[in-house]
Design a protein around this nucleic acid. Sequence first.
DNA 1: ATTATTTCTAAGCTATCGCTTAGTTTTGTT
DNA 2: AACAAAACTAAGCGATAGCTTAGAAATAAT
Lengths: 194, 194
Amino acid sequence: MYRITNAMARKKEYIEEEVIEKAMHLFWHNGYEGTSVRMLEKEMGINQFSIYSSFGSKHGVFQESLKCYKQKVSAIFNKLKTATRGVEDIKEFFYDSIRASQELGNQKGCLVTNTYNEFAEKEDDVIRKEIVDFMEGLKAIFIEKLRLDSSKDEVTIRKQANYLLLAKHGLAAASRVNSKEELEDYIEMTFRNI
Amino acid sequence: MYRITNAMARKKEYIEEEVIEKAMHLFWHNGYEGTSVRMLEKEMGINQFSIYSSFGSKHGVFQESLKCYKQKVSAIFNKLKTATRGVEDIKEFFYDSIRASQELGNQKGCLVTNTYNEFAEKEDDVIRKEIVDFMEGLKAIFIEKLRLDSSKDEVTIRKQANYLLLAKHGLAAASRVNSKEELEDYIEMTFRNI
DNA sequence: ATTATTTCTAAGCTATCGCTTAGTTTTGTT
DNA sequence: AACAAAACTAAGCGATAGCTTAGAAATAAT
């Protein structure tokens, strides 16, 4: 029997934040079901054992990927949050989202909304909470901006609901368009009467 | 050696049109990837052998299911085709679609649009053609109705493109809403400025 | 009744899924 | 150098995917 010591062990040969970013892009492009652990293994550049010891499960990798995504887009969120013009800021938010999606090298819209669609029929409270938080957060910001424009008018419950719809379907549209131009048309169409 | 005769053989114990309708509902509810051949076997009430001898492959079953769906909704299409009011008819088309979806016992929006989303990144020309034909057909009808309303105005290319977007995203929205009321709100929001 | 033909049931095929385990290698402390 | 702890490689686990096949059962002309 050896007594327990504080001997140090072998070092990790990868940085978790770095490999998760690669996983995120894979999930973004192929969806959750469309991404296998073997694919993750290849893309992340680490063995399955390392994946499971770092993140527990494929689901765990996905959760971390979602967090990574949220962090990547947080700059756009903060810009919208601190903006002061009103509805025009919301419109710009969508254009910022398109740009960010392209800069991140991905044309598959919004990872959160893609996930919302894919997980719609699944019973997965962890993911559902992540998504709903994101959507409701966006809705709250939208309503704030709306208040800036119509300081005299009341922001009715129904108007608030419409803004949640806008957040949901607007971002969803980004995942379905065939081109940047098409998405721009869609945004213009959507905002024509707000 | 027996000589070739015209002896008749055993009869099929199922009607292909009937079992395909059941398959369609399964695909509608769970998507293509979310539906396994074992599930089809159970739902259609026939053995895997029969599935493969009748339809060749899972893909074949899906193709027939899409055709079945198109036939089911053809009544709504024809109503829109022969309508004469204009944009108001398009709006009613969406409401008819909601009603039909509920009457067919399914709340998963439009099978064609769901398929469009699920097959977006797949290389599957057969399915893609089915979907594009459907969308373009709908767009053409929309433009016809638009002409009724603005007989003097020109129906620009850009306006036409917007109507394709409307067809695509409007139907897509139907697959993402949480309630009938939400979809109605979305339709109202969409049509507020057309 | 015999025969050819088709449909049926049920078992099994290979490939891949998410995940685990056995055993080796690397590490810092003793 | 001896040792415990952690991370590595690679093989393999049971379950399920889409699909096929072997053989029994049913059919109608002969």
